[in-house]
Design a protein around this nucleic acid. Sequence first.
DNA 1: CATGAATGAGAGTTCATTCAT
DNA 2: AATGAATGAACTCTCATTCAT
Lengths: 208, 208, 208, 208
Amino acid sequence: MQKKTRNSEATKAKIIHTSMMLFSTNGYNATTAEEISKACGVNKAMIFYYYKNKAGLYGAVLSHALDSIHNEVISKDKEYLEPLEDLKIFIKTYALYCEKHPYLPALLLRELSNSGAYLPDVMFDSMRKLFALLSKILNEGERQNLFHNVEPMLIHFMIVGTINLFITTKPLREKSSKLEDEIDTCCDCDMEYVADYIFNKVKLMLGV
Amino acid sequence: MQKKTRNSEATKAKIIHTSMMLFSTNGYNATTAEEISKACGVNKAMIFYYYKNKAGLYGAVLSHALDSIHNEVISKDKEYLEPLEDLKIFIKTYALYCEKHPYLPALLLRELSNSGAYLPDVMFDSMRKLFALLSKILNEGERQNLFHNVEPMLIHFMIVGTINLFITTKPLREKSSKLEDEIDTCCDCDMEYVADYIFNKVKLMLGV
Amino acid sequence: MQKKTRNSEATKAKIIHTSMMLFSTNGYNATTAEEISKACGVNKAMIFYYYKNKAGLYGAVLSHALDSIHNEVISKDKEYLEPLEDLKIFIKTYALYCEKHPYLPALLLRELSNSGAYLPDVMFDSMRKLFALLSKILNEGERQNLFHNVEPMLIHFMIVGTINLFITTKPLREKSSKLEDEIDTCCDCDMEYVADYIFNKVKLMLGV
Amino acid sequence: MQKKTRNSEATKAKIIHTSMMLFSTNGYNATTAEEISKACGVNKAMIFYYYKNKAGLYGAVLSHALDSIHNEVISKDKEYLEPLEDLKIFIKTYALYCEKHPYLPALLLRELSNSGAYLPDVMFDSMRKLFALLSKILNEGERQNLFHNVEPMLIHFMIVGTINLFITTKPLREKSSKLEDEIDTCCDCDMEYVADYIFNKVKLMLGV
DNA sequence: CATGAATGAGAGTTCATTCAT
DNA sequence: AATGAATGAACTCTCATTCAT
């Protein structure tokens, strides 16, 4: 009936990617195990075989997403150790990744909307790793007397908060722009522009 | 067994407040009608009697929440006084309101996490009005040649994104701080401090 | 579709009696909630509404059975306070009850077969109450210097163990008696006879 | 990861012994193939390879258990020596065997709890043989005018019923004894004592 | 208005069993 | 002989919602 792949890695990957898409489109609860399994041509029980339960799958999806963004930042940013350049790379990588995978901001906001109460440990760690990365950049900048008055957590929020909202509010902003008022919802801004804008503003903020 | 209040307004209010709390703490799906009814000592059927269905109740909760923040910000923000002062008031009002009613950021993020797909119109309007307020302040500042290079939507995101994340990540930040590594999650920052920090940074950003 | 009784007591009773029968005939696991609900014309969800979960229903069934036997013994035995007569009543009541409700020994043995590991507290209490009753009778007999060398727990086991086995082995004993051998499996013994036999043997055992 | 023993006898034995323990502790349904396979370090599929299905494994376990008790009792019970001595040996052997292999009473009770409906023939035969043994002893005692008013089946039930209950109720009796009320559940009785007690009581019962 | 009983549709999860290697 | 992947059929339990009183 179905191709029997007998290839665990392929099966796991199919599950992860399919459910990543479904979770971010429809949300955690509205996505059923049945649905996921059908969408990726895998027996429903395999979800539980590999991820124990639905929450486990969700955790795996989130941590996969966060890890991959983390790795992308890392891979682009290994050489410099020049805080300003590092910062730029961080912002741009995060922004472009989110644009390419708009499910990530959605999933993040969803998680945070219940204060991470059910946040799996894997994801918690992934988030900390990402923040630690920026933290290091900012602290190094301060050490070099390049950045001033740095509160890493808040700077982090300014960067990712802005990008997350920019992505997730897109439909709302478009809807708003169609209404005949003068309010500019940055509807035509592209991600590149937004990332640069943020970078420049953060530079100003840090007194560079 | 239970007092039969026979007071529809009181009953409705109890339902709204209780479910506001529950929705924002546990999320929409994880909050059951049963739970709400027990928590506020009202018969379960009354929820449906007054609000037709669960989604209806949720809509009522959202609009109630947004109305109240909107009113508060509006009432304190005597616009057109002086852009810088207006900006400060806007930030502080929003921040303190969120601190006092931490369900609001949670509800906002939750709604945005599915791109506002189910966002009731009333909420959409409230959000737009709020943004319009800030927008006007920023534009006025620009007109007075006080603020420079303003992209109102993005500035808005920086402000409310930061505050929303600061509120909703609180438990996570505390958890992280207990793991005593060197990462500073701004755990001891109080809202007042955060609001001032944001204000100062935004000032720098705007070239004041 | 179904008569809507809206009578909680009737509904609960129907559930209890139907599932008592099904549990004892087919065992705990082989009896499904679906089956019970269909057999008693009650919506499946009502089982969980009234008994929380399947184990809860099972506990209720067991404790209902044990309580009713306890009550029966009590009701027949309130006047005497003559140990020998009391003992006789205890044995006969237990025996006849079991004959009338052959599910009870089956359920008891099933429970004990996993050492009461999952035995609900209600049932544990019911069992203790029943044993306490016999215990009191035996101790009183000893006090009156009528019974000798009494180990109440073991006497209890002899009585109820014999009756339980007599009931539950019935089909096996019949099967055996059809085989052409001389072994007498007491196949034609009726309960009355068995109860009397046990009573007389216990009397001897106690040195009366 | 696991040693591939490639030794069918050893594998089969491991499966039997592990599942004997698990079946008797947790019952048939609550014991899963997964659990068994993990507990004995054998691949799950092997269970089905060797025993066709779960019921087949259970049958093998039962027959293994009964064979061993039967052999033990038979080997120690040199019948026709002297009825009273034979009786004593029978009781003690059964009692001590059960103490050493407490899974046996559990399995027996479990089987009887559904009236032996699914009892495999092999087990049925073993039980009959065991009873036949006692039967012969009792009849011989009666012939020698040593025992009086013997109903072998019921005497059998008194003996094995008591011992079975004594074993399987152990945890319950301990639990009860911790509730420090005056009820004596024979918690400190050891098997030796119980066997002697039963023997003496049976002697009295039989009019010796 | 208020209540507790009742319903139906479905979701997650489990598990014996089989298959491909 | 041995393994891990895969399957399908159940089963328990949940919950928004409605009904009768």
